[in-house]
C-alpha cells in the first residue's frame, strides 16, 4: 500500500517543527511513524505534510530530575524496555514498553508518538495515566504542561493543538510495585483488554481498550482506598468504562476481562 502524496519537511529543532506545523493546518508530526504510517498506508489518514521530528537529537533520553523521571518524546519503546534507570525507578514502563507490538516495532516506535496518537487501545498511554505522568508540550507561545488525566480527550484526540509538539513526559518515581496484564489472542496484537496497576502509598489502576481513551479504573481505586479486598475491588472493575464490541470481543466479555485482569494485576502488586 502507498500513502497519498504529502510534503515532507525535516525539522532540526522543536521550534522549527512548530513553525512548519503552523504553516499547514493539515500537517502532522512524524516521530517513529509506527502509529501514523500504518494509517496513511490504508489511507485512513492523508496529511498534506509530514514534519519529521525524528532527527531532533536532544529528544531521546531517560533521566532523573528530582523525584521525577524525564523521558524525551523520541525515546523508543526499545530504549524504555532496556533503560536501567527506568527499570529501577519506574519499572512498569519498562515492562509495558517491552510488550508493545513486536521487537521491530519497538525499535522504531516512540513514547511521544504513541502518547500523542492517544489511542485508547495503546499500552503506554494507559501506563502514563496510571502513573499520573505530566506531558510537556511546546507550541508557538512556549511550553506548557498537561497532566495525563487531562491529556487524553477522546478517540484519537489529545490536548495537543495542531501546532504543538509533545516534547517530554515526566513520570513520578515511587511506584516501585506494579502489575501489568495484557490480554490478546496473538502476542503481536493490540490488547483486547489491558490493565496497568501501580502502587506507591496509593494504588492507581488504568485500563487499555476499555473506552475511546485510556481510562483510570476509578471504581477500583476508590474501593481499594476504602480498604476493600482485591476481590471486592476487582468485582466492580468495569464500572465507569465504555468498552466497544469488535471482532475480538463483545462488550460483556471485555467487562468480564476487565474484572479478571484487574484482580490479576492487583495480585501481582503483592
Amino acid at each position: 500500500m502507498y500513502p497519498s502524496s504529502f510534503e515532507y519537511a525535516r525539522a532540526a529543532t522543536v521550534a522549527e517543527a512548530i513553525t512548519m506545523l503552523s504553516s499547514d493546518e493539515d500537517a502532522k508530526v512524524l516521530a517513529g511513524g509506527h502509529s501514523l504510517i500504518p494509517l496513511m498506508k490504508l489511507r485512513l489518514a492523508s496529511p498534506s505534510m509530514l514534519v519529521d521530528i525524528g532527527r531532533i537529537s536532544d529528544l531521546s533520553y531517560v533521566r532523573k530530575d528530582g523525584d521525577q523521571i524525564a523521558i524525551g518524546a523520541l525515546t523508543r519503546h526499545r530504549d524504555l524496555e532496556t533503560s536501567e534507570l527506568l527499570a529501577r525507578e519506574v519499572p512498569v514502563l519498562s515492562r509495558v514498553a517491552g510488550q508493545i507490538g513486536d521487537p521491530s516495532v519497538r525499535h522504531a516506535g516512540t513514547i511521544g508518538g504513541s502518547t500523542a496518537h492517544g489511542d485508547g487501545a495503546a499500552d503506554l498511554p494507559a501506563a502514563l495515566l496510571a502513573l499520573g505522568a505530566t506531558m510537556v508540550v511546546q507550541g508557538p507561545s512556549g511550553n506548557r504542561t498537561v497532566p495525563a488525566a487531562e491529556f487524553f480527550k477522546g478517540f484519537l484526540e489529545t490536548a495537543l493543538a495542531p501546532d504543538e509538539i509533545l516534547t517530554e513526559i515526566r513520570v513520578p518515581t515511587g511506584f516501585s510495585k506494579f502489575g501489568f496484564q495484557k490480554f490478546n489472542r496473538r502476542a503481536q496484537d493490540w490488547a483486547i483488554v489491558g490493565v496497568v496497576a501501580v502502587r506507591s502509598d496509593r494504588t492507581n489502576v488504568s485500563f487499555i481498550n476499555m473506552g475511546p481513551t485510556p481510562l483510570r479504573a476509578s471504581a477500583v481505586e476508590e474501593r481499594l482506598a476504602a480498604g476493600a479486598s482485591v476481590e471486592e475491588a476487582a468485582s466492580v472493575a468495569d464500572e465507569g468504562t465504555s468498552p466497544s464490541a469488535d471482532i475480538n470481543a463483545s462488550v460483556d466479555y471485555r467487562r468480564h476481562l476487565a474484572r479478571v485482569l484487574v484482580q490479576r494485576a492487583l495480585s501481582e502488586l503483592g
Binding site: 489472542r185 496473538r186 496484537d189 471482532i247
Partner: peptide, 24 residues
C-alpha cells in the same frame, strides 16, 4: 473469515485475520 450482515469481510488484513505466530 468474518462477515457482517451486509457481506463485508471484517478481517481483511493480517492485523485482524489471526495467522498464528511463533508465540502461539
Amino acid at each position: 473469515a468474518l462477515y457482517d450482515s451486509s457481506g463485508q469481510l471484517l478481517n481483511a488484513s493480517l492485523a485482524d485475520y489471526l495467522v498464528p505466530s511463533a508465540c502461539e
